[in-house]
Amino acid sequence: MFDRFDIFFVQQLINGFSVGLVYALVAIGFTLIFGVLNVVNFAHGEIYMIGAYAGLLAIVFLAPPWVALILLVLAAGIAAGVALERAAFKPFRRFRDEASLKSKAMRESTLLSSLAISIVVRESVEKIFGADMQAIPRAYADAMQDPIVLGELAVASGQIAILAAALVMFATLQWILKRTDIGLSIRAVAANPLGAQYVGVNVDRTVIATFAIGSGMGAVAGILIGLYQGTIFPAMGFAPGVKAFVAMVMGGLNSIPGAVICAIVLGLAEAVATEFFGQGWADLVAYVFLVLTLVFFPTGLFGAGRERV
């Protein structure tokens, strides 16, 4: 039915799909935070990196079972997210009126402060652990590489784990947003922060909860990818961070399903581009998509007229 080339190509598409899921895992947290605060969190890639390093430390010193490992990383991510919010975002939410909440100055100062925090965090990790790749101990990393053969195609168990994690995270997030009180207040703040405040929603606590949820997911994504790829390094957050950002913009800035779909499209497109143009040029795909989206679909592919978050 398939000749060799086609099988190879389908294999590449499967790999691209799992890369896309990686971007989607990062993009979910990114989009959640943007949807609520309407500001870009440039330090999200660093949360992802912190998740990977927290996981490595846990593995080296505690060697916990899988569930405990994921919970520890989740806790580290939540702590990092809350600390980030306190340091880089809270100081700039000092005004309450509508004009300053929407002002360019506030958006740009949080953008710059999260950027500055991300530099400080990345460089500090580099000073502590070194700039080099750190290998994840084999006992854990190998579990992600078991091949699962489906006819002529092979899928690594890590790819299945990433798919499962993406599905679980997406479902959990939808459950939190649609079925819990905190989700209700997150959606309220996303729709209108002042209105939410007038009807008694604690905006400050809601924002912290948003950061906790988004950062927890980012950190878990970090350790999953670290395990799957077998190595982690301080700058690992930059590329997925930028790609997740592109997915968010393509998806329309505050649509989580849109961001997930666009992240997968991006992963597939990169796999195809790698196939035809080589690894180096494939990095261009994300940026080309970004610029084309911004120029031709300024509201994103899925953005117009949807409920935020």
């Binding site: 870009v40 958006r107 740009e108 953008l111 930028v242 950002f245 592109v246 913009v249 990095d283 261009l284 994300a286 940026y287 080309v288 970004l290 610029v291 911004l294 120029v295 300024p298």
Partner: peptide, 13 residues
């Protein structure tokens, strides 16, 4: 912010 992101993308391109 859209302009900032576009320049980031073009710079990386």
């Amino acid at each position: 912010i859209y302009f900032a992101v576009a320049t980031l993308g073009l710079g990386e391109m």
